[in-house]
Amino acid sequence: MLMSNTDRPARLHYMANGFRVLAPGDHVVCAVSGVRVPLDELRYWSVGAQAAYASAAIASEALSPR
C-alpha cells in the first residue's frame, strides 16, 4: 500500500546549504510560532538548533543573542 505524504510533517536534518529528508512529509512546523511551513517554501532554519522558522523575522528573533 502506498502512503501519502500529504498533511504529514517531514523530519529533516538541517545543513548549512540545505536539508536532508529523514522522514517524508509535506511540511515542517516553525519552532517558534507553530505555523506549518510547506517544504517548497522553507527558507529559514538553524543548523545548530536543528529547527525550522516560518519567516526571516522569526528566525532573526529566535537566533539573536539575548
Rank of each mutant, 00 (worst) to 15 (best):
L42N: 15
L12F: 06
S55T: 14
I58H: 04
A52G: 11
V37Q: 05
L39G: 01
E41K: 14
M15D: 06
S33F: 01
P24L: 02
W45D: 07
Y14W: 13
Q50N: 12
I58W: 03
M1K: 14
D40Y: 09
Y44A: 02
A31G: 10
L12A: 07
L63A: 05
A16Y: 03
L42S: 02
S64T: 09
M3L: 14
A23S: 15
E61I: 14
Y53Q: 15
D40R: 14
A10W: 06
G34F: 07
N17P: 00
R8Y: 02
E41V: 03
V32S: 15
A59H: 10
A31Y: 12
Y14S: 07
N17E: 13
A62Y: 09
V28T: 00
A62L: 08
V21F: 00
Y53G: 04
G48V: 04
P24M: 00
L2N: 13
L22C: 06
V28K: 05
R66D: 07
L42F: 11
P38A: 09
P65V: 14
S4T: 15
A49V: 03
D26N: 11
P24E: 09
E61T: 10
R8F: 04
P38W: 01
E61A: 15
R66C: 08
Y53N: 04
Y44T: 05
R43S: 08
N17C: 09
S55R: 00
W45S: 03
A62E: 08
H27Y: 15
A59D: 01
D26K: 09
R43L: 12
S64L: 07
R36E: 15
N5G: 06
E61Q: 15
G34P: 09
V47A: 05
P9R: 12
L63P: 00
Y53E: 01
V28I: 03
L42P: 03
D40P: 01
V28S: 11
N5S: 10
E41N: 15
